[in-house]
Design a protein around this nucleic acid. Structure first.
Lengths: 291, 291
DNA sequence: CGAATAGTGTCTGTAAGACACTATTCC
DNA sequence: GGAATAGTGTCTTACAGACACTATTCG
C-alpha cells in the first residue's frame, strides 16, 4: 500500500474524495509516489537486538555503550540502521530486516557470537522515542549459548554481557532511577524480549538454543530455572522433558564425570526435531494471569 | 540507536573502526545524524491492517481494491503511510504506529467500523516487496464484531469483507493462481494474521471481540468453530468456558427466544476481566505440531 | 409431536505436581 | 562415609474429551 501517500494527499482536499476525481489525476499521483520518495516524511528504520544468553547461572543481555549523544555513555541494545548497500553488480542490494539484525549483532558483538536463534520481536515507533528524528525500530530477539569470553565489540565503543537483574527492570516496565538506565525505550524493548523468551520456553524447544550440544537434562533445567527465575523439581522436570516427543534425543553417551558436587554421570542429549512442545512445559503457579 | 547511520558510514572506511578515531569526528557525525535526515536511504514506513470479523458464519477479512498501479485492481489489506502531520500548534505532531493503523482502518472502511481489538502483528521489510521503493510495513491485527452491512470505503476505491476461504490460501503460505490474488506480500501477512488469531483464541479471551455483548455461550462457540475451522463439542465447550475464571460473566438475563431451530432460551454473558485464560482452550488434535 | 438446542452428569485417559526412593559419583 | 545428583516409581488432583441424559423451545 505504498501509494497511500498519494491517497493521503488527496484526502486533504475534500473534492478529491469522490470516486470520479480519484482516477483523473491518478497518473500524477502515481508519479509522485513512484519517483520522488524523498518527498515522504523522513522516517528512519533501524533494527535493535535483544540478545540473551546464560552466563554464570544468570540471564544476561548484550549491551553496547553509546559513544555519541544523545544518551552518550548510556548502555543500549545493539542495533542500527537498515542499509541499502550498492551491490556487486551496481544494483542497490537491500538488506532484509533479519539480515540487518544479524549484521548489527556481528558488528557490535564480534563475529565470534554464534546466535542459535533470531526472531522478530516487535516494532517500536512512538513519536519522540528518539529525540532527533522519527525512528521506527524493528526489534529482534536472539538466543546464544554461553560464550567463553565477554564480547569485545568490533564496531562499538564497548560491548558487554550484562545480567538482566542488574538493570533494575521488573517483569514489565522499567523501574526508575535504579542502576544502569538504558538509552531510548530500550528498557521496554528488553522487558518485552524477556517476556517473549519466558513464554517461548513453555511451548517451543528454544531452551536448547541456550546450551551447547550435547547437553544434560540438568543443564536444560538450569536454562528454564534461570530464564523463569524459579526452581523446578528435578525429578518431575526430567520425566516431563523426556515425555515430550521430539524435544530432545539421546546421543547414547554419558558425561565424562559426575556433577561437581557429586552425583552419577548423566546421559547426554541433543535437540530433537520438534518445533512445538506438546505437552507444553508450563510455568508454575501463574495465578497472576493478569486480571 | 539512530546514530548508527553515522557509524555505518564510518564502517566503510576501515581506519574509522579504531576506537581512537571514533571520538575525533564525533561532532561532525552527530551533526549529520541530527540535521540531515534526508541523507539516509529513503525507506518508507507503512501500516497494514488485517481486520477480521465473522459474517454469515464465515471468517472474513477487510480488503480494499487498489485504484493505482502496481497491482491495480488487485485487492489488498487496508493500510498506508505513517504520517507526520503538522499539529495545531505548528509543531510536527507525529502518529504512533497503532494510531496510524486505526486511522487507515477508519479511512478505508468507514468510521462505522468499531474495532474491539487492535494489536501489532509483525513487520515486513523484505527488499522488493514493493516494486517501487523500499517499504517497511508494520502489520496490525484487528478484530471486529459482526457489522450490519458491508463496508463502503470512505477513502478507498472499494472496500469489502471477503471470506478468507475465498482467497485460496492454506494454513500458511499462498496457493498460486487460485481465486483473488492479493497485492504485494499481503497473502503472507494475512496468513500470519490468521495463525495469530487462531493461536490467541486458545489462551486469551479475544473471542469475545468477535461478538456483541451480551452473547450466549453458543455464539462464543461459533466464534471458535469459525476461526479454527473445526466443530467443537457443545457440552464440553460450555462447561470449559464457565470453568475459566474471568472469561465470561453472567448478566442474569436470558435470550428473548430459543434457537432458530428449536431449543431452550440461553443465558446471556458479557466478557469478564481475565486477560489470560487459565486453563487455556486448546485446539483439538494438533498432532501436526510441525516436526 | 419431532427436532434441535441449553445445560449437566459421569467416566476415562492424560498430565502436573508432590513425595519417596535407589543408584552413582565427588570430596 | 557423607553429600549431592541422576533417574524412576507412585500417588493425588486437575483437566480434556467422549458419551449420556434432561429440560426447553421452535416449527
Amino acid at each position: 500500500m505504498a501509494d497511500a501517500a498519494a491517497k493521503s494527499a488527496a484526502a486533504k482536499s475534500p473534492a478529491a474524495k469522490s470516486p470520479a476525481a480519484s482516477s483523473a489525476d491518478s497518473a500524477e499521483r502515481e508519479f509522485l509516489a513512484s519517483y520522488d520518495p524523498r518527498a515522504f516524511p523522513p522516517i528512519a528504520v533501524t533494527v535493535d537486538v535483544v540478545a540473551l544468553t546464560i552466563r554464570d547461572a544468570e540471564l544476561q543481555v548484550l549491551l553496547v555503550q553509546r559513544a555519541e549523544p544523545p544518551y552518550q555513555h548510556h548502555w543500549a541494545l545493539p542495533g542500527g540502521f537498515v542499509r541499502q548497500l550498492p551491490g556487486p553488480d551496481g544494483d542497490a542490494t537491500e538488506e532484509d530486516l533479519a539480515e540487518a539484525a544479524a549484521r548489527e549483532l556481528a558488528e557490535e558483538a564480534g563475529s565470534r557470537l554464534r546466535t542459535q536463534h533470531l526472531e522478530q520481536l516487535k516494532t517500536y515507533g512512538a513519536p519522540g522515542r528518539d529525540p532527533r528524528m522519527r525512528v521506527v525500530s524493528v526489534a529482534y530477539l536472539a538466543f546464544a549459548p554461553e560464550m567463553p569470553e565477554p564480547q569485545a565489540g568490533s564496531d562499538a565503543a564497548d560491548a558487554q554481557w550484562v545480567p538482566v537483574c542488574a538493570l533494575g527492570l521488573s517483569e514489565s516496565g522499567q523501574r526508575p532511577g535504579t542502576t544502569r538506565k538504558l538509552a531510548f525505550d530500550h528498557a521496554r524493548i528488553l522487558a518485552d524480549g524477556l517476556e517473549r523468551a519466558r513464554a517461548k520456553l513453555e511451548y517451543s524447544p528454544l531452551a536448547t538454543a541456550f546450551v551447547t550440544e550435547p547437553f544434560t537434562i540438568s543443564e536444560l533445567r538450569e536454562v528454564y530455572e534461570t530464564v523463569w527465575g524459579e526452581k523446578l523439581h528435578p525429578g518431575n522436570f526430567h520425566r516431563k522433558v523426556l515425555s515430550v516427543p521430539g524435544f530432545v534425543e539421546s546421543t547414547g553417551d554419558l558425561t565424562q564425570t559426575g556433577g561437581a558436587r557429586g552425583g552419577p554421570r548423566a546421559k547426554l542429549y541433543r535437540g530433537g526435531d520438534a518445533a512445538l512442545l506438546h505437552p507444553a512445559l508450563l510455568r508454575p503457579d501463574r495465578e497472576e494471569e493478569v486480571r
